[in-house]
């Protein structure tokens, strides 16, 4: 029996994808546990026992003010230092959709200077100005994420209203692309990164759908691998046949393998 890495599945008012995320990590061989932010903020030392930290999707605190903002503020004020230390000592972190928005606002992603928590990019309102749920195809470019191979393609659903990446300035945009911070891009039918709707549902420049951080151990993405982790989730299984392992599992499997040290 191989060792099952402990994964902290964050709960907070409005986070609503925790059950499927929990289950996906379980399938990947992790030992997931729910921890509510109200508990975590009073027991930041808890983080020391985990090797994976996950911020699932949802509408934390209703996405009031801006998506993920209130939760990011709460974490920064209460466990910001501990989260940073968690990543620095080798912990892996994943933010899906609202969790990604939150990690970006917290400043854990992309943290190109390797310094303290400071927001460098924004995830702005979709150009359509509304929430939208649709399946998209993602590709991984050459990237610095320690558990994400280059050239992966996965079809997963996106479901968000604020997903358009806006870097602080042109220099940062350049760094993100050049230094492998872009973890996922939306691609068109020919497999090329796209800014066109609907293959890119939010208008994100360069088709950026996900980012990693300076350490390569933190990953955030807008679409939901947690809704493409069982074979029958795929929109075309009736045509293509049921996959042995659903495409969304790639991320969970890779994180667990890496956390176990056999990545």
């Amino acid at each position: 029996m191989t060792h099952a890495p402990r994964a902290l599945i964050l709960r907070a008012p409005g986070i609503n994808c925790e059950r499927e995320t929990f289950h996906a990590f379980e399938l990947a061989g992790a030992a997931p546990e729910y921890v509510h932010v109200k508990h975590l903020r009073h027991h930041p030392e808890l983080l020391e026992g985990f090797s994976i930290f996950v911020a699932p999707g949802g509408f934390a605190y209703g996405d009031d003010i801006a998506a993920g903002r209130v939760l990011a503020n709460e974490l920064r004020q209460t466990v910001g230092d501990q989260l940073l230390a968690f990543v620095e000592r080798g912990g892996l972190a994943l933010g899906i959709c609202n969790g990604f928005q939150m990690l970006v606002r917290l400043g854990l992603l992309p943290r190109t200077d390797g310094g303290s928590l400071a927001q460098q990019v924004a995830l702005s309102h979709n150009l359509s100005d509304h929430y939208e749920c649709r399946w998209v195809t993602l590709k991984t470019p050459a990237n610095r994420c320690v558990f994400l191979d280059e050239g992966l393609t996965l079809t997963v659903p996106a479901a968000h209203g604020e997903g358009r990446l806006t870097p602080k300035d042109a220099a940062l945009a350049e760094t993100l692309q050049r230094d492998g911070y872009t973890a996922f891009v939306y691609v068109d039918e020919d497999g090329a990164a796209t800014e066109s709707y609907p293959a890119n549902p939010n208008g994100s420049p360069g088709g950026v759908a996900g980012l990693t951080d300076v350490t390569g151990r933190v990953l955030g993405l807008m679409p939901h691998p947690d809704r493409a982790y069982l074979p029958f989730h795929a929109p075309d299984w009736r045509r293509a046949g049921l996959a042995e392992r659903a495409e969304g599992m790639v991320i969970f499997d890779a994180m667990v393998r890496t956390a176990r040290g056999d990545g």
């Binding site: 609503n16 994808c17 059950r19 499927e20 289950h23 996906a24 999707g57 509304h130 929430y131 939208e132 749920c133 649709r134 659903p157 479901a159 939901h224 947690d226 809704r227 982790y229 069982l230 029958f232 989730h233």
Partner: peptide
């Protein structure tokens, strides 16, 4: 209309 609704959350959509 349909696209504005989340019809995938909870991981049960078959």
């Amino acid at each position: 209309i349909i696209r504005q609704y989340d019809h995938e959350v909870q991981g049960g959509s078959a």
